[in-house]
Amino acid sequence: MAAEIDIHAHDDSHPTEKQYWVVFVVLAVLTAVEVAWSYMGLEGVALVAPLIIMMVVKFLLVAGVFMHLYFDTKILHGRLFWWTFVAAIILAVAVYFTVFATFEFGI
């Protein structure tokens, strides 16, 4: 049955249970580090840059592993999901960052 073949194809491309747990632990640790970092009393770039980096890493981990984006690229045309999502993110960041820049700098 075609459907079964398809499911097995999915099965092969999905991460293992262990991988899920590892990712979760990394996420939890990152969250803890983030919170700790915010209590360090730092200011400016030293405070914000690591927080943003950790946020992006968490984002990529959830999207790549839990949402299977990393693994979906192995199925036929699965990269399309990735491109749809990334295009939306890039669009959103670019557009809203521009808006914010026009407000903040007024130039």
Binding site: L76, L80, T84, F85, L91, A92, Y96
Partner: peptide
């Protein structure tokens, strides 16, 4: 493209949601 319609639609919807939450966060 051999993709599931539903899954494709869900990803499109999520792409749309990116713009929604982007606007709200801004």
């Amino acid at each position: 493209l051999g993709l599931s319609n539903m899954k494709l639609a869900m990803w499109l919807f999520l792409g749309s949601e990116c713009l929604l939450f982007g606007a709200l966060i801004s």
